[in-house]
Simulated scan of single mutants.
Amino acid sequence: MRRSRFTAFVTSLLLATGLALTGAATAQGSPLAATGGYVALGDSYSSGVGSGSYISSSGSCDRSTKAYPYLWNAAHAPSSFAFNACSGAKTDDVLASQLGSLSTSTALVSITIGGNDAGFADVMTTCVTSSDSTCLSRINTAKAYVDSTLPGKLDSVYAAISGKAPSARVVVLGYPRFYKLGTTCIGLSDTKRAAINDAADYLNTAVQKRALDHGFVFGDVRSAFSGHELCSGSAWLHSLNLLDITESYHPTASGQSGSYLPVLSNAA
């Protein structure tokens, strides 16, 4: 999510004082061709927002040297590496500005996309600042979008990737559940936390179906994040971070290296 999109989010969260807000691949991996290149696409979960160590030349895209694409490249040294993921990206942004590095020599593509299309920032703002019923209503609106519109958006992105990089192994990574349930946790109600987790599952199911239908691999990070959700006492996700609001509800460096990286490595 871009910094500009968080202006209203900051204001709303500051009003909610006192709140402490507090997944392995589904297919067997195959080795990346030694001569092939790697292209990392997607949104803030792929650019590494929340993990720090941002590359200055990436500007508002906030690409991090601790993000899973950067770590995978360092460990495997593919013949080329293009780190195109950008904070705030939606499916249309991927189509418009992230696919230029793909070619017939691309051997591996990774991507997280769909969360911003489904209105992640607004869902969290609503659930933090409003009643249980209003939160649930906003989540239901997001689910309706996931049912009606997101599949077509994902199809357009996935078809474009295949068209530009027909030989690539494409790994579509999902999103974690945010909260550990059944624990004492100051902040959002149990009802809200359960509904947010359910929404994450709903989004992952839709993304996985479209990915598999295109012959791609789905990298499910939920099991890898198990025990490290918000309210777990060992979170790999940021809760509310007033010092850098953009990092809120994004993986920490440990979340990138402990979950996203091994899931990609198993699937690549």
Rank of each mutant, 00 (worst) to 15 (best):
S189V: 04
G23M: 05
Y260V: 11
H250S: 08
N116D: 10
A142E: 04
F9P: 05
P78M: 05
L95H: 00
V123C: 00
S12Q: 13
A144S: 15
V221Y: 08
P31G: 00
V123R: 13
T35D: 05
G48A: 11
Y249C: 05
E247R: 10
A118D: 02
L99G: 06
S223N: 15
A16E: 03
A211Y: 03
A27E: 09
L95M: 05
C185V: 15
V39M: 05
F218Q: 13
L264S: 05
G88S: 03
G152T: 12
T22A: 11
V146W: 00
Q256W: 05
S51F: 13
L108V: 07
L32K: 01
A195H: 01
G23N: 06
S103G: 11
I111V: 08
K153I: 04
S239H: 07
H238D: 07
V109S: 02
T11K: 13
G152V: 01
Y179R: 12
L173E: 13
S46Q: 11
V39R: 04
A75H: 09
L261E: 10
G255T: 15
M1Y: 12
D93P: 13
A224M: 10
A194C: 03
I196A: 00
F216V: 06
Y38H: 09
G174I: 06
K143D: 03
P262A: 09
S46T: 14
S133P: 12
A211M: 08
V39F: 01
R2K: 15
L14Q: 14
T252A: 02
S87W: 06
T134Y: 01
T35K: 02
D220Y: 03
S103Q: 01
N84S: 04
D93L: 08
S234M: 05
K90D: 11
A224W: 03
P166S: 07
L136K: 13
H214C: 13
M1T: 14
D147E: 06
L19C: 14
Y70S: 15
I196H: 00
S105L: 04
A268E: 12
S47Q: 02
S232L: 10
Y54W: 00
K143L: 04
S97K: 09
S57G: 02
A160E: 07
S79V: 11
R3I: 15
S234C: 07
G119D: 05
R169I: 09
L264C: 11
L13V: 14
I161Q: 01
L41A: 08
D92C: 05
G258R: 08
T183N: 12
S105K: 10
N197L: 01
T191S: 13
T183P: 05
D92K: 13
V171M: 12
G37L: 09
S79M: 02
L154Q: 09
S265W: 02
D62G: 13
I161G: 07
D220S: 10
C185P: 10
R2Y: 02
G174L: 07
T184F: 13
S56G: 10
T104M: 00
S101A: 15
H228K: 14
E229D: 10
L15C: 08
T91S: 09
P78T: 12
A67G: 15
L102Q: 06
T246N: 10
A8W: 02
A20Q: 08
A211H: 03
A75N: 11
A144Q: 12
C135I: 10
F216S: 06
I139W: 03
T35V: 03
T35A: 08
C135K: 06
D220W: 09
L32N: 01
S265E: 06
A75T: 14
P151N: 06
N84W: 02
I186A: 01
